[in-house]
Design a protein around this nucleic acid. Sequence first.
DNA 1: ACGTTACATCGTAATATTGCGATATGGTGT
DNA 2: ACACCATATCGCAATATTACGATGTAACGT
Lengths: 112, 112
Amino acid sequence: MGKSKIEYFSENQNKLAQFSKVISHPARVAILEFLIKRKQCICSDLVMEFPLAQSTISQHLKELKKAGIIKGKISGNEKCYCINAEVWQTIKKELNLFFNQFEKNKEECCSD
Amino acid sequence: MGKSKIEYFSENQNKLAQFSKVISHPARVAILEFLIKRKQCICSDLVMEFPLAQSTISQHLKELKKAGIIKGKISGNEKCYCINAEVWQTIKKELNLFFNQFEKNKEECCSD
DNA sequence: ACGTTACATCGTAATATTGCGATATGGTGT
DNA sequence: ACACCATATCGCAATATTACGATGTAACGT
């Protein structure tokens, strides 16, 4: 009970759900938008920008990194993060494929 | 703690996160794809199709309905569900806007 | 070597999600 | 009125997520 029955669904359905989960938290959306604006940043930039603890930011970065949507390069003391362009395009494409499956048909079948 | 600090983020960031959350579970992705294929269906169609209890399906439908992505019309005994075309397009557009914020630049700033 | 800075990870608490059985609601057919 | 559908909701248990402070690790400056 409570445990997701993800094994019953297709690989594609699970992949899409996972991609969506990454951007299903406003902090991660905000981090990604910040990263787009600044091209790159380090963890402490985000700690300054957002009202979240360093450990919390670090955890969100870990999630984003796990999904591949960002990448980080160690540069001496710091760790420089940026968008992973390839994965970004992949996720964008997959979401588009999903949303393009539905074509509006003239006759609406239901209403509220 | 553990409570999401959603109040610190913009309306747009929260909206995008909420839209994403709806499709961040494989069962809901599967339900939506089923709904696209069949144009419309009732709850018991889904109960037959997926290895989930009726109450679980009903709950996922509730989530989808809350987000507005589907709508349901009571038809006697049954409740006919289908995609809400308008909301579908809205979510698609919002996600596209988000993903189009990032343009690949030639020089990669980080690597793994 | 020592303190500082940057970041990750651990441990824990609060909260949210997922799932199911049981039960409620409300329309259908008899 | 009654049994029978279809669906919604309630109550609960298992699990996942979010968040933070404390602590660990590793490079830096002195």
